[in-house]
Design a protein around this nucleic acid. Structure first.
Lengths: 162, 162
DNA sequence: TCCAATACGGATATCGTTTATCCTTATTGG
DNA sequence: CCAATAAGGATAAACGATATCCGTATTGGA
């Protein structure tokens, strides 16, 4: 059970978009170059973000993507779910229904105990991701990345911004 | 990102094994019949449990599986990790290393902020699973399942127990 | 002692998902 | 009008999940 690499890509891209000046767009090409990723395939991840309304896009030269809301209002969960989907990681196939002792037409009152427990864990995972915003991510990154590299990266992006 | 169905199977099988009288074994065949599962493939899941030392097995007629510890000492996480592996669900490919602004031979101090946050969520998931034991599961099930069905299922199993 | 039932592990096949590329279309700034 | 872009469909390769089959070793019971 491994998350798609597109989740990682989308998060890194969102981190860049969160640092953009208000209203400016950055293209798939620039994002792919900056992260060393295949442009065509990264494009699919960005389209997922777009469909989830996390980013706006424009066409034409100097087109690209920007966040549709302030970074403080976009959570990790938003991004992860945009790419990975909202389905729970545990799927209950209700195999208890195959119990040979069951009377015909027996109907279960609710989800089985195993599913409830697994779904609780899933919700704990989601709650953890919901607690972190892109604004917090940028803060963390700024603390981690040496100031010189931070500045150069910003300038690299600004040269390509629409 | 969906957990293998073997996780579900293993948990249901553990629930049955947890209800067995001390020292008795139940075969793959019986477990497969009870849950309506393909015997050969279920066998792989049980082998995973065996390799993780969660269950003991014996060969020969009246052979099968039993829990290797009291149900209160086996957690959901034990079972999930036995089948699914202990690897984290988020894999960091360190794509920040592709940043074109990086000086040659630059070395990162630690894992990147995105990985840390994703791994925190993973740990929240694991902590949630670690908090629930098979003993607690059996308690839940006994509350959910009607007494008649509970009793009949127990007898069904006891007829096949080694 | 022999037989049948079992766990175990290797080999193989099938299927779906992820990853990736290519191409067409519509849009837009210069 | 042109070039750059997002969007999305079609396709294929690679991989993991699912599933089956078979051979081996072990063991309880006849």
């Amino acid at each position: 059970m491994i998350l798609k690499s597109q989740v990682e890509w989308a998060l890194h891209c969102c981190a860049i978009l969160a640092g953009l000046p208000d209203g400016r767009y950055l293209s798939t090409k620039a994002l792919a170059e900056f992260h060393g990723l295949p442009k065509e395939y990264l494009s699919k991840a960005l389209q997922s973000l777009s469909q989830a309304r996390l980013v706006d896009s424009t066409l034409g030269p100097s087109g690209g993507y920007r966040l549709s809301r302030p970074p403080a209002e976009i959570t990790f969960l938003d991004v992860v779910e945009a790419v990975e989907g909202k389905e729970r990681s545990f799927v209950c196939n209700n195999i208890r229904a195959n119990n040979p002792c069951r009377p015909e037409g027996y109907c279960d009152a609710g989800p089985c105990a195993i599913a409830r427990i697994m779904w609780d864990a899933d919700e704990a995972w989601r709650a953890s991701l919901r607690a972190v915003t892109l604004a917090m991510l940028v803060q963390s990154l700024e603390k981690d990345v040496p100031p010189a590299l931070w500045r150069e990266s910003f300038e690299w992006v600004m040269k390509r911004v629409g």
